[in-house]
């Protein structure tokens, strides 16, 4: 446990959901001597889309692999529908599916052969074919079912991998950075695909989703979020609640000397910080403040200026003192603490 994290303020948490599907109870996990997950306590509700938001190395993937039973916690445990899980529990593994960072597909085989293998691995009844057709139809992949996975684009592979995970009709779906490396269009297609399938199957069998991500936009579509930093849960809350804790707008200025820019803006008395070489000015209305900020900052030589709404990345910086996109251990990416 490092001192910086130990000194962080404890952020208030939203109340836990009424219908708890999975309870993570004081889970701690170590990689050798290093604590990767420390005392994590989260309750995830039925039919919830729950996010784990944190930078690389914050423990998101480790927590998911613990949930999936691929590793065992050093202490603490899990409850599913109130029943304590023993690892490895066959009944538990029937209920869950995992989409890993890299697709769990055999690239040399066709889409249909891959789905057939996973149907067999899960001992699904013959009706899996009908379900697979529906899944592929929804993902606009049915016509390509006899093509080798290696011939598909990255976005299509992710959709096939999602179809593979949904084929066994899971009640809990774990997604470990499922859209990393995808372009914007493929990212949207992936989520639209999952959203459509969840909507279509909600009445029959709702699917609870836990997604680990370091993308603000991905986290914002979650019902609730746990913000993770250095293996600890900083807070659990709704994205809207989290965003309400920071100023609604940001004016981001890029200049050769951002610290000089920060000093020049001091008379405006707006909170600001330097993150990744850019000055982030917090304000309640970016459009209203923009002319004044430009007027004061112009003599310092502005290279670029952007007005945008606050993101969960900004919330993360406010809570932890460093950037969401930074890999933990890379301290140069953190804020310099130059708050007004």
């Amino acid at each position: 446990m490092n001192d910086r994290t130990a000194n962080l303020p404890t952020a208030p948490r939203d109340a836990d959901p009424r219908n708890v599907l999975l309870a993570i109870e004081k889970v701690t996990f170590r990689h050798g001597a290093r604590v990767a997950i420390e005392d994590v306590e989260i309750a995830i509700g039925e039919d919830e889309l729950f996010g784990l938001l944190g930078p690389n190395g914050s423990g998101k993937s480790t927590l998911l692999s613990l949930c999936a039973g691929l590793q065992r916690p050093a202490s603490g445990g899990f409850r599913y529908r109130g029943v304590a899980l023993t690892s490895p529990d066959r009944r538990w593994r029937r209920e869950l599916s995992v989409v890993f960072q890299r697709p769990s597909l055999d690239e040399r085989l066709t889409i249909w052969e891959n789905l057939g293998l996973h149907a067999q691995i899960h001992a699904l009844p013959g009706s899996w074919r009908e379900r697979a057709r529906e899944l592929l139809q929804l993902g606009a992949l049915l016509e390509r079912r006899d093509e080798a996975v290696s011939t598909l684009s990255g976005g299509m592979k992710r959709k096939v991998d999602l179809a593979r995970a949904l084929l066994s009709n899971p009640r809990l779906l774990l997604l470990d950075e499922p859209t990393s490396g995808l372009d914007e269009r493929s990212y949207r297609a992936f989520w639209e695909y999952l959203r459509s399938w969840r909507t279509a199957t909600r009445a029959e069998a709702p699917i609870t989703v836990i997604v680990a991500t370091h993308r603000s936009d991905e986290a914002e579509q979650c019902d609730r979020l746990a913000i993770l930093d250095r293996g600890r849960v900083i807070t659990v809350s709704r994205p809207s609640t989290l965003k309400s804790r920071v100023a609604p707008d940001r004016i981001v200025l890029r200049a050769a000397k951002p610290n000089e820019l920060a000093e020049a803006l001091a008379p405006l008395a707006l909170p600001h910080s330097v993150i990744d070489g850019a000055l982030h000015v917090e304000c309640d209305d970016g459009q209203r403040w923009l002319p004044q900020v430009v007027e004061v900052a112009a003599p310092c030589g502005i290279r670029a200026i952007e007005v945008r709404s606050a993101t969960l990345g900004d919330v993360f910086v406010a809570l932890t003192g460093h950037a969401l996109e930074a890999t933990l251990g890379d301290e140069t990416a953190g804020a310099n603490g130059g708050r007004a």
Binding site: D16, P17, R18, N19, V20, L21, A23, E25, K26, E41, A43, G45, E46, R79, Y80, R81, G82, V83, R90, R91, W92, R94, E95
Partner: peptide, 16 residues
Amino acid sequence: MTQLEGVQPEVMPTTT
């Protein structure tokens, strides 16, 4: 810990 107050009556599916 209060998280399990709202647990559904449904329990883990049985196996054969």
